Amino acid sequence: MKGLIIKDLYELIKQCRFVVLLCLVYMIIAIMGESSTFFLAFAIVFISMLPITLMAYDEKSKWDSYAITMPYTRKEMVLSKYILSLIGILSMSILYLILRGTTLLIMDGSLSKLPGMMTSMLPMILVAILFSSINFPIIFKFGAEKGRLAMIILCALVGGIFGASAASAEEGGDFFVSIFSSIPNIVYPIAAVILLIISFWISVNFYEKREL
């Protein structure tokens, strides 16, 4: 398992440097801008889907056919992609909080706004996990190439919904907070865990039945 994750991280650095840099740029825009939720949400969601990009590279290089000859089970191969997605989400979120906290200390001399920002990030993290939880089973069922169209349609649909929400929000308002303000914070981690468990179980079943 550790070897699979290290392999994916190495491939991520080698093949997806531009995408990672783009996510960092969006995060910096979120830190510097007044209305930051869209850019931060984009960065978190986009980084969570990088393992799917890696799966396309793996499929092109016939990695899966080689990997099943090694002492890895298909369940471990699926789990490594979920772990990598979570690493991306948590890393981007933590980095944002560190940089945003530093900015607040420099500009305001206080971290009083940081707890509110942490709360507003919970829906974004849930949305990122939702994207991954839906897309992973599709990719493990049909493969990266065949599943790409379904993934693009899903991204466009969800992105359109949140884009419309952002456009209709009050000027300068936080549309994520306005949408999810009535939901208790404890619901987000519970929903995330449930989504991941269900998605992982479906992905494993699809992948174990797929011919490589």
Rank of each mutant, 00 (worst) to 15 (best):
M1W: 04
K2R: 08
K2F: 12
G3M: 13
L12W: 02
C16K: 11
C16A: 08
R17P: 10
R17H: 09
F18K: 09
V20G: 04
V20Q: 08
C23Y: 04
Y26Q: 03
I28H: 07
G33H: 10
S35L: 05
T37V: 04
F38T: 15
F39I: 07
F42T: 10
I44S: 06
V45T: 06
S48K: 03
A56K: 15
W63P: 01
D64E: 11
S65N: 08
S65A: 11
A67Y: 03
M70Y: 14
T73K: 01
R74M: 02
E76L: 10
E76D: 05
M77F: 10
L79F: 10
S85V: 03
I87M: 05
I87R: 03
L90P: 02
S91Q: 15
I98Q: 05
R100K: 13
G101I: 03
T102P: 11
L104Y: 08
L104R: 07
L104A: 12
L105C: 13
I106K: 12
M107L: 13
S110N: 15
K113V: 06
M117P: 01
M117C: 12
L126T: 15
A128E: 00
A128S: 06
F131G: 00
S132V: 10
S133H: 04
P137G: 09
F140R: 00
K141P: 02
K141F: 02
K146L: 09
A150M: 11
M151T: 13
M151A: 12
I152K: 13
L154M: 07
C155R: 08
V158K: 04
G160A: 05
G163L: 04
E171F: 15
G172Y: 10
D174N: 11
F175H: 03
F175K: 00
S178D: 14
S181A: 15
S182F: 05
S182A: 14
N185F: 09
I186D: 05
V187E: 05
Y188N: 00
V193Y: 00
S199N: 07
S203Q: 03
V204G: 01
F206E: 10
Y207A: 00
